[in-house]
Design a protein around this nucleic acid. Structure first.
Lengths: 107, 107
DNA sequence: TTTTAATATTGCAATATTACGATAATAAAA
DNA sequence: TTTTATTATCGTAATATTGCAATATTAAAA
């Protein structure tokens, strides 16, 4: 056992769950807050800002990139990460549709 | 290793992540959709509707209850689950604040 | 070219999650 | 009281996630 049975759900259900799941870690929430706060994009400051090892931060950034929430660009010898605002808005809208649909059906 | 370091994050960051995490499974997304669709509250239909064992569904319901998204009431020999609309709205608002704050800081 | 700085990847250990069968608990029905 | 139906909990196996040290990669600087 132990395998999530994705095949019994719709693509939309799986996609929604995937978005929620990636956002479902305090380090990733914090990374997103930090990057958006700095306006300018951020790279390794996260390591000193958040108390996690460089390898760990890098993994979390990878997850956030995997759903398109972050864009990373090479900037000299470091990486410049910034919010992908289009995707950000798209996901926010998706989640609101999910919430509003449920609410309107229910009550 | 393997333990999420919650102590290095704020309560709000942990709370947000917790909401996202609970919603981050396709079975739980599906359960919420199903319950809200039926308007009337639902209990064991979920087991036949979704292709998961009764014990598994029960665990997922427990998770959803743990963040207050569902209310469960005894109804004869079965349980009647329904959306906790106040909590639903509250969480939706929290998530929107998170999304909007990031967006307005960033761009 | 060699060094340095920043980031990514690999490999591993610890922990958490997912799922299910078996069983317990609960309440109505017989 | 006994049976039946429904839901919860326990125990366990499989898988996934988290975190870090060590190492690789990459590009500027010396």
């Amino acid at each position: 056992m132990g395998v999530t049975k994705r095949q019994i759900f719709t693509e939309r259900q799986n996609d929604l769950a995937r978005f929620f799941k990636v956002l479902g870690h305090p380090a990733r929430v914090t990374i997103l807050q930090y990057i958006s706060n700095k306006n300018a994009c951020i790279c390794n400051d996260l390591v000193s800002e958040i108390g996690l090892a460089q390898a760990t931060i890098s993994q979390h950034l990878k997850e956030l990139k995997s759903i398109g929430l972050l864009k990373g660009e090479v900037e000299g010898k470091s990486m410049c990460y910034c919010l992908n605002v289009e995707k950000w808005t798209e996901i926010q809208n998706e989640l609101n549709v999910f919430f509003n649909t449920a609410k309107s059906n229910c009550c």
